[in-house]
Structure formats: structure tokens, C-alpha cells
Amino acid sequence: MDKNKVILIIDDDQNNIFALKLALKSRGFQALGCLSAEEGIAQLQGNSTIAVVLMDMMMPEIDGYEATRLIRQSWSSVRLPIIAVTAQAMPGDREKCLAAGANGYISKPIDIELLVHMLGELAG
């Protein structure tokens, strides 16, 4: 992934955003954090530097499934990788995330090396 591009983290937990931003920064990536799906969707509008979205699937108001569907509807002509990030790791959860429009799935706690590998595959 181009190091000039930005990873957008959408998660309702400020601690998760902080930890992910720190881990990604230590590997040379830039990241933005948003505490809600609404804020994340607003951040996407007119921001061409965002290369990938890390979407928490379990958020209040608009959850990650709905947010992913909204992004896919609004930016259908843009190839924007979305990685579902969730504590849900039961059988069928990965498929549910992919059916909502995510390109990848990673469970919490996040294996940062696996995430970096996914970023390379999806946004490389």
C-alpha cells in the first residue's frame, strides 16, 4: 500500500482507534480515526487519500454492516477496500461481513502482522 495513502479506522472505542493508529504508524502507515459510522462516511466524502477502511462491525446507531452497505451504495464506482474488524468470531460471522460488502475480515484482538499482510493484498 502506498505510504502516502491513509487508512480510515471507524470504531466507537477511542482506545481501539488509538492502539491501531499507534501500531500502524510504527509500520509506516498513516491512519485517521472516526468514532461513528456517520463520522466515517462523512470523512470519505471528497477525501481521495483514503486507501482502505477498517470497519468495526459492532457499533451503536449505524453498525458496521449497515455502514459498509451504505459505503458500497454511495461509492459503487470506487474500489475502496473495507476490512471488517470485529470481536465476533463465531461460525458464519466472516461470511456475514463479506455479504455486507467487506473485502476482508479480521477478529479482535487484532494480529497486526496479519492486518499489514491484508492491507498489502487489498490496497497494494
Rank of each mutant, 00 (worst) to 15 (best):
K3L: 06
K3V: 06
N4H: 14
V6N: 15
I9H: 06
D11C: 05
D11S: 09
D12V: 05
D12W: 04
D13I: 12
D13Y: 07
N15L: 10
N16W: 00
N16H: 03
F18R: 08
L20W: 04
L20M: 13
L22Q: 13
A23Q: 10
L24M: 08
L24Q: 05
K25W: 02
S26D: 02
G28T: 07
F29L: 01
Q30F: 06
G33Q: 02
G33L: 02
L35C: 05
L35E: 08
A37L: 05
E38I: 06
E39Q: 09
G40D: 02
I41Y: 02
I41G: 01
L44W: 00
Q45H: 00
G46C: 11
G46T: 15
N47A: 07
S48W: 01
S48G: 02
T49F: 03
T49Q: 14
A51S: 06
V52F: 05
V53H: 00
M55P: 02
M55F: 05
D56C: 11
M57T: 14
M58F: 10
M58P: 10
M58V: 15
E61I: 14
D63P: 01
G64W: 13
Y65L: 12
R69N: 03
L70M: 10
L70D: 07
Q73W: 03
Q73A: 10
Q73I: 02
S74F: 01
W75I: 00
R79T: 09
R79W: 05
L80A: 09
I83G: 04
V85N: 10
T86C: 09
A87K: 08
Q88P: 12
Q88Y: 14
A89L: 12
M90R: 13
E95C: 13
L98N: 07
A99V: 08
A100H: 03
A100L: 01
A102R: 08
Y105H: 10
S107Y: 14
S107R: 15
K108G: 14
K108L: 15
K108M: 13
E113R: 15
E113A: 15
L114A: 15
L114K: 15
L115Y: 06
H117S: 15
M118A: 02
L119W: 03
L119M: 08
E121D: 10
L122W: 04
G124H: 03
